[in-house]
C-alpha cells in the first residue's frame, strides 16, 4: 500500500505538488493521467523516496518512506522513461541481477529471481544477450524485469511507451496485464490512454500538481476531457 498524506513539493520555488492525498491499494492497476508538467513524474518519484516532500508524508506499507528507504525501494519497483539509460550492465542477466545483488541476497536466490523476472516479461533464456542489440520494446521489458527482481508489491512506470512502436507498446502492455493478473500492483503514468483504460481499475487524473479526478475508468473519460491526454477513439 502506498499512501500520500497532504504531500506538497516545490522545485526552485515553483509548486509542483499541492496537498496531494492518495492511497494506492495492493494489487490495484492504477493509471496516472495528465498532461506534461501536471506533476505525474514528481508524484511517482515520491513513492520510493527519490524525492522527499517539502511537507506531508509518504508511507509504503504503513512505514514512512524516509524511515526505511531500502524497504520502500524494494516494495515499489520503478521504471523510468528512456530505458536505455537505466541499465547498469551490458548484458541482460547481469543487469536484472543488479537490484537483488544490492539487497545482499544469496546467489541462488538472485538467480531464481532473475529467471522469474525474465520469464514474467517474456525474455526467458535471454540472459546473455547484449542490451544494445535488443529492440526498444525488449529493452523496456528488461527494464521492467530489473524492477521485478526486487520482488516489489507495486510496479510504478513513468511514460514507459515513449519512443516505442505499436507492436512493442502492445507487448509491454500485455506483460503489465499479466503481472497485474498475478497480483502485482501497477501504477502507470501516461498521457496516452489508448488500450490501457480497459486494464485499469482506477484512473487518477492530475492537473497543476493536484488530483483533478479519481475514480473508475468509466467515469474518468468524462473527467479527462480538457486534460490534454490522448483518449481512445470512439
Amino acid at each position: 500500500m502506498i499512501e500520500f498524506r497532504s504531500v506538497s513539493y516545490a522545485f526552485e520555488d515553483v509548486s509542483v505538488l499541492e496537498d496531494v492525498s492518495l492511497t494506492i491499494e495492493d494489487g490495484e492497476f492504477g493509471l496516472l493521467a495528465g498532461a506534461n508538467g501536471s506533476g505525474k513524474t514528481t508524484l511517482l518519484r515520491h513513492c520510493n523516496g527519490l524525492l522527499t516532500p517539502d511537507s506531508g508524508e509518504v508511507l509504503v506499507d504503513g512505514t514512512p518512506v524516509s524511515d526505511d528507504l531500502i524497504a520502500a525501494r524494494s516494495s515499489v519497483g520503478m521504471v523510468f522513461q528512456h530505458p536505455r539509460d537505466q541499465f547498469v550492465s551490458a548484458t541482460v542477466g547481469a543487469d536484472v541481477a543488479f537490484g537483488p545483488e544490492n539487497l545482499g541476497l544469496e546467489r541462488a536466490e538472485i538467480d531464481r529471481r532473475v529467471d522469474a523476472a525474465l520469464e514474467a516479461v517474456n525474455m526467458a533464456g535471454r540472459e546473455d544477450d547484449r542490451i544494445d542489440t535488443l529492440s526498444g520494446g525488449e529493452q523496456s521489458r528488461v527494464a521492467i524485469a530489473g524492477a521485478l527482481a526486487m520482488d516489489p508489491s507495486h510496479l510504478v512506470l513513468d511514460e514507459p511507451f515513449t519512443g516505442l512502436d505499436e507492436p512493442a507498446r502492445r507487448s509491454v502492455l500485455e506483460r503489465l496485464a499479466a503481472l497485474s493478473a498475478d497480483g502485482t500492483g501497477v501504477l502507470l503514468a501516461t498521457h496516452d490512454l489508448r488500450d490501457v483504460l480497459t486494464l485499469a481499475d482506477r484512473v487518477i487524473a492530475m492537473r497543476d500538481g493536484q488530483v483533478a479526478a479519481d475514480g473508475s475508468p468509466d467515469d474518468a473519460l468524462e473527467d479527462l476531457a480538457g486534460l490534454e491526454v490522448r483518449v481512445p477513439d470512439r
Partner: peptide
Amino acid sequence: RLSLALRARCFAWNPTLP
C-alpha cells in the same frame, strides 16, 4: 537519468559479489 535508476534499485556499498 542513470543515477535515478541506480537509486531506485538500491545501489549499495555491500552487494552480493559476482
